[in-house]
Design a protein around this nucleic acid. Structure first.
Lengths: 345, 345
DNA sequence: CTGAAAGCGCTAACAT
DNA sequence: ATGTTAGCGCTTTCAG
């Protein structure tokens, strides 16, 4: 049943010409006569010719494939980044391979190597690790494959990054809580070896300091951020000596878990407990009450990242780019102790 | 800066042997001595050798890449399917390329062709079109590239499918509404050329017939399903002559839009209006009220689909498989007019 | 404007 | 157990 695919050699034979000419004609080379170009293209369509990208890339030494590595695709934030990347990539004729790491460093390493094996022209990654000095990255570097870090970048200087000003985002979120009159603000901080979470914690601390609110380390919870963990982690702060009156979570999902618990306990949001999340996941706008959160312009992160990548592929001399976007605080009911008009003053 | 990658030829030279031996050693061929195998593997690691999959696939004529085509990745349903696929694929040593069609037929065609160009070993697709007879599918067929349809399959017989019994799922959902005492049930039906939506409508009709509820065509809305459209589409049914008392939506997103509108209008769910969605998207469990919906075992769909694909890749004679999973009704508050204990009787 | 020839890196007969 | 040879399908000098 399986029929072997048509090759340019066969097209050439049928037209009494050579593979070189066919190849050039198909790629629209200037130096081929109109007549020949048309003849070749017509036959190619007639015979259902499809280029063999393996052979093409192998020979030319350049592929039109990008690699994308994210923790998981089922987060609005990441799937929007991916859309942003593919949008631009497709226009430039690039395909992309998407890998998920599920936040496991080993899978990340493997993904990078696998992409190298697949001869990708560039790699776009939201990394788990705190350093770009892992063997896989070094290897990509050695081979001249540009690596663009987006969202989660490392602290290293010499790399291409497209990130959000997480510090600023967190600062704005916490400042908003303080202005609303909240005083004891819990912070779900996330693993601190990941730079974005460290930055968000710094933003949280900065806001507290600025408003002379004493920093209580007991209010800071550092752990992986998920709905289930948030559900458990908020408990100690709902009554007793550690009782708090607000939560700033570095993740919408952890904040969601907390909200579920808080509602179960019959505690009122935002009156007794204010909530601010991070990422503007789709669900934050539809839950009850709608959650204040910080939008990271995910799609645009993708746009910028792939632009930087395509440029890096073209350029021979590596000039590292560091693009920082400002996040946007989205104020919703979960943090509105005061009526909205006072805020908008 | 860019260093050319190490090849087996270079490894061979350094070890005073031949590329064939190195190639065989790296792949763990039996007929290579332990000693040689170790020597080769050690050097490969030392020199950061990575296989060039382009060359390997080109030569051997078989690639270890699967293509996945879905409407979009930022739906829990699809991203879970993808996880289910990758889980099994990775174990078998396969990588996957993910394409999004955004529900545009042209993009779907292009994606299939692009995957063919990339020499994928198989294609897993949740299709938009109503037929597997488009040029791209015919071409894949001709080339002996197995195509597995999952979730959204076409009506054609001769193809590999992994689907959910959408008819049954819809039937169960509507039956549940009827048993709860709802009588005028709106149906958001989705584009009927897509088989799953057609099946869901049939299930809806079947349940009505079975309980002798008159079928009112005015209650059936056929259009693309999204949150925004649901928000608008429910309006005519909230008061006036067309007033209804329940909604069965073929999509959770459209149901969500309806819920937002219904709450805005101050109409009570589930007392005045019962809601059942479809897909068990993550948000359905956390909105207020939690939404009754139908779970499609998305991850398992992915598992089965990729298994079928891997088998099809191995087998020479194509035996078409048609795997049907039973969906599960998940009852939540949005449809519970009667207290729960009565249902559980 | 077109053709001839070489080779990208790898694998698989076929030999030894 | 290893080496020899050829070639996957394409692109790219170099030569007309």
């Amino acid at each position: 049943m399986a029929i072997k695919r048509i090759t340019i050699t066969e097209l050439a034979k049928e037209l009494n010409t050579t593979p070189s000419t066919v190849s050039r004609a198909l790629r629209g080379h200037e130096c081929i006569s109109r007549e020949m170009r048309d003849k070749v293209n017509d036959l190619a369509i007639k015979r259902n010719y499809t280029v063999n990208r393996l052979a093409s890339s192998l020979r030319s030494g350049s592929s039109k494939t990008l690699g994308i590595i994210v923790p998981r695709v089922n987060r609005d934030f990441f799937s929007n980044c991916i859309s942003g990347i593919e949008e631009v990539a497709a226009k430039a004729g690039y395909t992309s391979i998407i890998c998920q790491t599920h936040d496991e460093q080993e899978k990340e390493e493997k993904s990078v190597l696998s992409l190298i094996e697949s001869n990708v022209a560039g790699i776009l990654i939201s990394t788990w690790s705190d350093s770009s000095q892992s063997p896989a990255f070094i290897e990509a570097n050695r081979l001249g494959i540009p690596v663009i870090f987006f969202d989660r970048a490392t602290k290293d200087i010499n790399q291409n990054k497209v990130v959000v000003d997480d510090n600023l985002g967190a600062y704005e979120g916490v400042k908003h809580l303080i202005e609303q009159g909240y005083k004891r603000i819990v912070h779900f901080a996330g693993p601190q070896h990941i730079k974005i979470y460290n930055d968000r914690k710094e933003g949280y601390l900065k806001a507290l300091r600025e408003f002379n609110i004493p920093i209580d380390k007991n209010l800071i919870v550092e752990n992986p951020l998920s709905k289930d963990i948030g559900y458990d982690a908020i408990l100690p702060f709902l009554k007793g000596p550690k009782k708090a009156d607000a939560l700033f979570s570095a993740s919408d999902y952890a904040a969601l878990g907390a909200i579920i618990r808080i509602k179960e306990m019959g505690i009122s949001i935002p009156d007794e407990m204010g909530i601010v999340g991070f990422s503007n996941e789709m669900f934050t706008s539809i839950i009850d009450p709608p959650m204040t959160t910080i939008d990271q312009h995910s799609k645009r992160i993708g746009n910028y990242a792939v632009q930087a990548c395509l440029e890096a592929i073209k350029e021979e001399n590596p000039v590292f780019k560091n693009i920082v976007l400002s996040p946007t605080l989205i104020i919703r009911e979960s943090s509105l102790k005061k009526p909205l008009r006072i805020i908008n003053k």
